[in-house]
Nucleic acid binder design. Sequence first.
DNA 1: GTCCATACTTAACAATATGTTTACGCAAAA
DNA 2: TTTTGCGTAAACATATTGTTAAGTATGGAC
Lengths: 225, 225
Amino acid sequence: MDSKGKKILIADDEPDILEILSYNLNKEGYEIITAKDGDDAIQKSKLFKPDLIMLDVMMPNKNGMEVCKLLRSQPAYQDTLIIFLTALSDEVSHVKGLEYGADDFISKPVSPKILVTKINTLFRRVQKPDDTALKAGNIVIDPVKFVVTVDGEDIVLAKKEFELLHLLATKPGRVFLRNEILSQIWGTEVIVGDRTIDVHIRKIRQKLGIDCITTVKGVGYKMVV
Amino acid sequence: MDSKGKKILIADDEPDILEILSYNLNKEGYEIITAKDGDDAIQKSKLFKPDLIMLDVMMPNKNGMEVCKLLRSQPAYQDTLIIFLTALSDEVSHVKGLEYGADDFISKPVSPKILVTKINTLFRRVQKPDDTALKAGNIVIDPVKFVVTVDGEDIVLAKKEFELLHLLATKPGRVFLRNEILSQIWGTEVIVGDRTIDVHIRKIRQKLGIDCITTVKGVGYKMVV
DNA sequence: GTCCATACTTAACAATATGTTTACGCAAAA
DNA sequence: TTTTGCGTAAACATATTGTTAAGTATGGAC
């Protein structure tokens, strides 16, 4: 579930369209938010921070183009994927849409297959690996090779363990609240218990063999230098 | 960036398209030259010696195919990258384009992100000429002879298997995300399932007999050194 | 062109690694 | 002493990959 669990906002004034799109994308594991017009789309974008926004070109209260232009002008939406829903032959919208920073177009009537394929592909494109190796004392954390090295010896961590250690190592010495850890590693969507963090911390300590993570009772964890 | 500062010639009869493409590629640091038809494209190619040429299929005064054929017939343009701009569903152009020596295709309407990604990828591909044999431990991968040698013994791999192994071997130890693998080996057009990668990995492991590829669960694969 | 061999892809299922919860014990603070 | 928070281990659930087999292209020989 890497490209999934993403949030998609769909804005269209026709309830039928909304339903069809929602159904098909929801089935694929995406979380769907719907909006019925331009203003609604802007509001809900700010509220839910979707990863992808589908805009009907023709909508009441600000059409798709206007919404796109407005969102793209803000830094927070620079990397958000934006797709337009257009009539099949609407070349003008295509050209204009591109100027406003659209990433793709889907023509009505919408084929569920093309829809899903396009969206999966788009998400696939934007993912890129983080490539800054971190060092904390005698520990080296290398996201490129996905290995942790202690005193020159490679240690294999599971994904979550690695992410957790990497997070702590971004600011050695700084305390990370349990809440921070949860939202950074697990995201706001998934809800996991507090014990889950403990268990991962324990495994990291166990695998690394050295005591590099300190517990700050009632607060969180930090990396020692 | 080392793949930048390159010259790109864009040939299309629609000024809007020219402008959009120019804008996005220029932003990436490429130097852009535009041409409005086939003859213009040929002239400016000779004049500016671009590193990459984007040709609209439908153009006045020699269409994209003709231009491609003509340029490719000259030794000077043997190694120039040529990309076609095609309508989304234009399968015929794809087939013909490949015959004439196209390096890739971009479907209209053009997504800026995909455009930039593709072009960056293409330059990266040619930057490291494929004629250097790679070595990783006791494995030698020779793209010229298309053979893999383990401890002096030749092993025959299928095309996809070879490409996959070669990709991993370009940066031994580095983790390649499944996404990266998909876009590097399969490209942006084709969409294949995740299991497909596994199967190829399996075959490589089986044929080589040695354990040179490590699985990083939830992340991807990497070559061990 | 047809046939054949090979490679590629997909789907179903098995195996395994990973993530999460639970229950309990311990220790420090109130 | 009671309470609170954390550590631990095992049980459980889930996710991800490995494997197999069968279907689908693809390209070459004839």
